[in-house]
């Protein structure tokens, strides 16, 4: 029972990350009709907003190690700590939450610039062209990050107060021995809040209503005198911010490196396809569903029956869905069916 409970949590946590990335992907596809292969790189850029801020906050006074003479080996003490003591230490400790404030405007600017500077020229081009150009863009973004930060993962810590594990088992009657990292619980909660926020924005605001109308029938909305294109640009920016925030919050779980976006991209595309291209609800449902399935398939008991199932389960589900229901779980009729 403990194992099942923990695997459900693992799946939901993993699914949260998949859902956040897939949400942005499907939003862009649903509004602009663009298949954006650079979306994973945006997730990675969000993570590197944290790394950058961490580097800035930990600019340090260097005390040289006198025993090393052939190169500069030194011990560092951040100026923030020297100047502000415990307050400085606390600011460094909370680098991930603080980075959210930094990442929102940065990712919005990146998203709008990307849409205006490149993506819009590919609206009417074939999906293959869109994939090629956005994939190329992803590689360029990766290499830029690599040239600044190297290829090795860079450690980022969650705030000290939530760095450990929560005895979550006692809350559900499974005893104190069942623990789960605080930060992963926070990530799960965070992804729920962001997903809810995006849905609320699209569902309950006039702006969102117009966007949804544009997704359903762009031409008619245009004929009503609404500049739907500008709204879609903002939606692209919103999708970029969502991907970036997913990356920011994931840094304590997975030390960021320049390639991390690519690792999530393929899985997120599978999530979008399974959920239904352009379906926001489908992306979220499929994200959590596939996350949980992946976790359960990793259990020793399951692998004893079907060896290696943990490595193929997501793709297996995708194949079955595409064969049985090509439009995906919640996809619109006609999309991906021709």
């Amino acid at each position: 029972m403990d194992a099942i409970f923990l695997q459900i949590l693992n799946g939901l946590d993993k699914g949260g990350a998949y859902a956040l990335i897939a949400l942005g992907l499907t939003l862009v596809f649903g509004t602009l009709g663009v298949v954006n292969f650079a979306h994973g790189a945006l997730f990675m850029m969000g993570a590197f907003c944290v790394v950058t801020l961490q580097k800035v906050l930990t600019i340090a006074k260097r005390v040289k190690d006198p025993s090393v003479t052939f190169f500069d080996a030194y011990k560092e003490q951040p100026y923030l700590e020297i100047w502000f003591g415990d307050t400085g230490r606390a600011i460094i400790d909370y680098v991930v939450p603080i980075s959210i404030l930094l990442a929102i405007p940065i990712m919005l600017i990146v998203g709008v610039a990307m849409e205006r500077g490149l993506i819009r020229y590919f609206y009417k081009r074939a999906h293959a062209d869109q994939i090629l150009v956005t994939f190329g863009l992803a590689i360029v973004l990766q290499e830029i990050i690599k040239s600044f930060f190297g290829a090795n993962p860079i450690p980022v810590s969650a705030p000290h107060v939530v760095a450990g594990s929560a005895a979550i088992g006692s809350l559900v009657g499974l005893g104190d021995a069942v623990v789960y990292p605080w930060w992963r619980l926070i990530y799960l909660l965070f992804s729920g809040v962001v997903i809810f926020g995006v849905f609320a924005f699209l569902q309950y605001t006039t702006y969102g209503m117009v966007v949804r109308a544009g997704m359903a029938d762009r031409e008619t909305v245009g004929l009503l005198g609404i500049n739907i294109q500008r709204r879609f640009t903002i939606v692209f920016g919103l999708a970029t911010v969502v991907a970036g925030l997913a990356g920011v919050m994931y840094t304590p779980v997975l030390p960021p490196d320049y390639h991390m976006g690519m690792e999530f991209l393929v899985l997120s595309f599978v999530v979008v396809v399974v959920g239904g291209m352009g379906s926001l609800g489908g992306a979220v449902t499929a994200g959590f569903l596939l996350g949980v399935l992946q976790s359960f398939s990793s259990m020793t008991e399951v692998k004893a029956i079907i060896p290696g199932i943990d490595q193929i389960i997501i793709y297996l589900v995708a194949v079955v869905i595409l064969l049985v229901r090509p439009r995906g779980l919640m996809g619109r009729k006609g999309v991906m069916e021709s």
Binding site: D2, A3, P153, P155, L254, P255, M299
Partner: peptide
């Protein structure tokens, strides 16, 4: 990348040592 599904079974396995036969990024993660 995410090893959580492989780590959680360790918690209640009765093991008191975890040997990580991983290198590079896998080891870090």
């Amino acid at each position: 990348g995410d090893f959580s599904q492989y780590i959680t079974p360790v918690l209640n396995s009765g093991a008191d040592v975890l040997v990580l036969n991983h290198y590079g990024k896998d080891m870090i993660n």
